[in-house]
Simulated assay, not measured.
Amino acid sequence: MTPPPAAPAPSSLQALQATVLAMPMAHTLGLRFVQAQAGHVELEMPMNEAFCFRPGQLQATAVFAIADFAAVAAAGSVLPPGWTNATVDTTLKLVAPAQGRCLRARGRVVNAARLLTVCAADVWAVDAATGHETLCASLLATARNIEGATAAAAARA
Results as ranks from 00 to 15, higher is better:
L29A: 02
A67F: 11
Q57I: 15
L92H: 02
E147T: 14
F69L: 08
R106M: 09
A65G: 14
R104H: 01
A113F: 01
G30Q: 01
T87W: 05
R108Q: 06
A7T: 04
W83S: 10
A113R: 11
W83L: 08
F53N: 14
F33R: 06
A73F: 07
C119R: 01
A60D: 11
N85R: 01
H132T: 07
C102L: 15
E49Q: 08
K93H: 15
V78N: 04
G100N: 07
G56L: 07
L13Q: 05
P10W: 07
P55G: 07
A153P: 02
C52I: 12
V34P: 05
E49I: 03
A112C: 08
V34R: 12
F51L: 07
C119I: 05
S77F: 04
L139Q: 07
E49P: 06
R108T: 15
D122I: 03
L43S: 02
H40V: 09
D68P: 01
A113N: 11
A137S: 12
L29S: 09
A125R: 02
G107V: 10
N48Q: 12
A9E: 14
S77A: 11
A152D: 09
V41M: 02
A50T: 06
V88I: 13
M45P: 12
P55W: 10
R114K: 08
G82R: 01
V20Y: 06
D122N: 12
T117G: 02
S77L: 14
V118G: 08
G82K: 05
G39P: 05
A157K: 13
H132I: 07
A113L: 02
P8Y: 04
W124I: 03
C52H: 06
R144A: 14
A143Y: 06
A86P: 07
Q59Y: 13
C102H: 09
T134Q: 14
G148Y: 08
A60Q: 07
A22W: 08
A121P: 01
P55V: 06
F51A: 11
M1I: 04
E147V: 13
A153D: 11
S77C: 01
H132C: 11
A98H: 09
L31S: 04
E147R: 08
P10V: 10
A9D: 15
N145F: 04
G76C: 06
C102I: 13
P80R: 10
A129G: 06
M45W: 05
A15C: 07
K93N: 13
P46W: 01
M47G: 09
A105E: 00
S11P: 00
V41R: 00
F51T: 05
A65P: 08
T2M: 12
C52S: 12
L116G: 12
R54S: 13
Q35A: 13
L116V: 15
A149D: 12
A74Y: 08
C119Y: 09
S12V: 10
V20P: 04
A86C: 00
A129T: 09
A6H: 14
A26H: 03
L115E: 15
A15W: 05
